[in-house]
Computed example of a mutant assay.
Amino acid sequence: MAVRRTPSGTGDRPLSFIEQARRDQLIGVTVDLVAERGYAAASLARIAQAAGLTKGAVLYHFASKDAVVAAAHAHVLNALVADVGAAVDAAPADRAPAAYVRRMIGHLTEHPDHARMIIEAMINVDRPDAEARWRPLAALLRSAREARGLAPGTDPRTLALIVGGAIDAIIGERLQDAAYDTEAAAEALVTMLETALFT
């Protein structure tokens, strides 16, 4: 449950239903604005206007524009991680990397606003730790080889970096060309990944 510092500074308290609903609304509006217009154009005034509120009301819930954008970024990342995580958890260990690739591309194709929000936030607000991007996939790659009884092969970090870059390129192409077939691209990437991983 989210908490908010009380105005008097006496401690944290749970958000009321209305406060949580308003924060959720502001996060949704911010995702839409940043995805549609970019970080620079998503001012506090525009966020407030899109939500039908005053800037003061936005600042009641978030300390600054960067705080709203950071919350919106966290929201889309949490949705992505939950979706991809569920697909990976449902797959056998040796199929988990394929599930990861398919669902990562699938989620970002289905939610282009999330893809744009992640890109804008990474460029303008929150530059993530590079290791945090490749380490989870590298662990899946190691586990997949172990599940098939294979000795260590290609460096999992290198393979994870290559796959991550390919996913970024596929999604970037889809953002530029809505007709680009990301499902076929995901299958091609899975084929290349499994060739590198298991042969």
Rank of each mutant, 00 (worst) to 15 (best):
11 G>H: 06
11 G>E: 05
12 D>F: 13
14 P>E: 14
14 P>M: 11
14 P>R: 10
15 L>E: 15
15 L>C: 14
16 S>H: 00
18 I>R: 09
18 I>T: 04
18 I>N: 02
19 E>H: 02
20 Q>W: 08
21 A>E: 11
24 D>W: 02
27 I>Y: 12
29 V>D: 13
31 V>M: 06
34 V>E: 12
34 V>W: 10
35 A>C: 02
35 A>Y: 09
38 G>N: 06
38 G>A: 08
41 A>D: 12
41 A>I: 10
42 A>W: 02
44 L>C: 04
46 R>C: 10
48 A>E: 13
50 A>H: 15
53 L>F: 04
54 T>L: 10
54 T>W: 08
55 K>R: 12
56 G>S: 15
57 A>P: 00
58 V>L: 05
59 L>G: 01
59 L>Q: 13
60 Y>R: 07
63 A>E: 11
64 S>K: 11
65 K>I: 09
65 K>P: 11
66 D>G: 11
72 A>F: 02
73 H>K: 01
74 A>S: 15
74 A>I: 08
74 A>E: 15
74 A>Y: 11
75 H>G: 01
75 H>R: 14
75 H>I: 04
77 L>M: 10
77 L>D: 08
81 V>C: 00
81 V>R: 14
84 V>S: 14
88 V>A: 08
90 A>M: 03
91 A>T: 05
92 P>Y: 09
93 A>W: 02
94 D>P: 04
94 D>H: 14
98 A>W: 11
98 A>P: 12
99 A>C: 01
99 A>M: 00
100 Y>M: 04
102 R>Y: 11
103 R>H: 07
104 M>F: 15
105 I>C: 00
107 H>W: 05
109 T>R: 12
110 E>T: 08
110 E>S: 07
111 H>E: 15
113 D>F: 07
113 D>T: 06
116 R>Q: 04
116 R>Y: 06
119 I>G: 07
120 E>T: 05
121 A>F: 07
122 M>F: 03
123 I>V: 13
125 V>R: 06
127 R>D: 09
129 D>F: 04
130 A>G: 03
130 A>N: 06
131 E>P: 01
131 E>R: 08
133 R>Y: 05
136 P>D: 15
137 L>A: 05
139 A>Q: 14
140 L>Y: 09
143 S>K: 15
143 S>G: 11
145 R>Q: 12
147 A>I: 05
148 R>M: 02
149 G>D: 10
152 P>S: 01
152 P>W: 03
156 P>F: 07
157 R>I: 01
161 L>K: 14
161 L>M: 10
162 I>Q: 07
163 V>G: 06
167 I>S: 02
167 I>A: 06
169 A>Y: 04
170 I>Q: 15
170 I>M: 15
171 I>D: 11
180 Y>N: 05
184 A>H: 14
184 A>I: 13
185 A>D: 00
186 A>M: 03
188 A>K: 13
188 A>I: 02
190 V>M: 05
193 L>C: 03
193 L>E: 01
193 L>P: 04
194 E>D: 06
194 E>N: 06
195 T>G: 12
198 F>S: 06
199 T>I: 03
